[in-house]
Write a protein that binds this DNA or RNA. Structure first.
Lengths: 94, 94
DNA sequence: CCCGTGTATTGACAACTGTCGATATAGCTC
DNA sequence: GAGCTATATCGACAGTTGTCAATACACGGG
């Protein structure tokens, strides 16, 4: 594996390598329309709104979540195939 | 997902969320007998021996690598199924 | 045009992480 | 046991990360 490929992959793994971000992914994927807004996510995680917004931005920047603004609300959903692609890296390694 | 489950998973993802550790995994899995010693790994990564030993310890503590000492050499190999188990978490999430 | 509300950004701070040099430990060979 | 070699541990340091309070921005309703 080249160094730059390893850098790219580590950026994505770093994005999900945080307990609160793993819970965000879990909450979003298991919610009604497979999407959730920030206000739905602060309470179950017991974190402040800026902190949740920060974590969501990291996941969006990593290409794992999609952000769609409708009116005042920002709805977050999983990018189809993003997690599968990361999973593939792990299964191919062994 | 419970908070403690998320903590456990994040510990494993943190272990692989580093470019040099991803390369270590790649190097070990693609080497001859699916194992390698520290001395084989320092040169391709261009890191010092203490640093490589440190990264390997993190992977062993996370249950991803197995360490077997034979004489003066320490041979590292993938723990069967460890990466598959992590991959499963990602595919099930979506 | 305000006001209220949902979200994003900024600045600050403690905690953690990756790296290195120096040193310690373990095991082989003579 | 002495010396050599492979590996592990320690101490230190810069850089990064997660969190919060404060603030800014964006949008809809009156």
């Amino acid at each position: 594996m080249t160094a730059s490929r390893a850098e790219d992959l580590s950026r994505q793994f770093k994005a999900i390598a945080d307990p609160n971000r793993l819970r965000l992914i879990s909450l979003i994927s298991s919610s009604a329309a497979n999407e959730a807004c920030v206000c739905d996510l602060t309470e179950p995680l017991d974190l402040g709104q800026p902190t949740v917004s920060h974590h969501l931005k990291i996941l969006v920047d990593a290409g794992i979540l999609h952000r769609e603004k409708r009116g005042v609300w920002a709805y977050f959903s999983l990018v189809p195939g993003a997690l599968d692609s990361l999973a593939g890296v792990l299964t191919e390694a062994q």
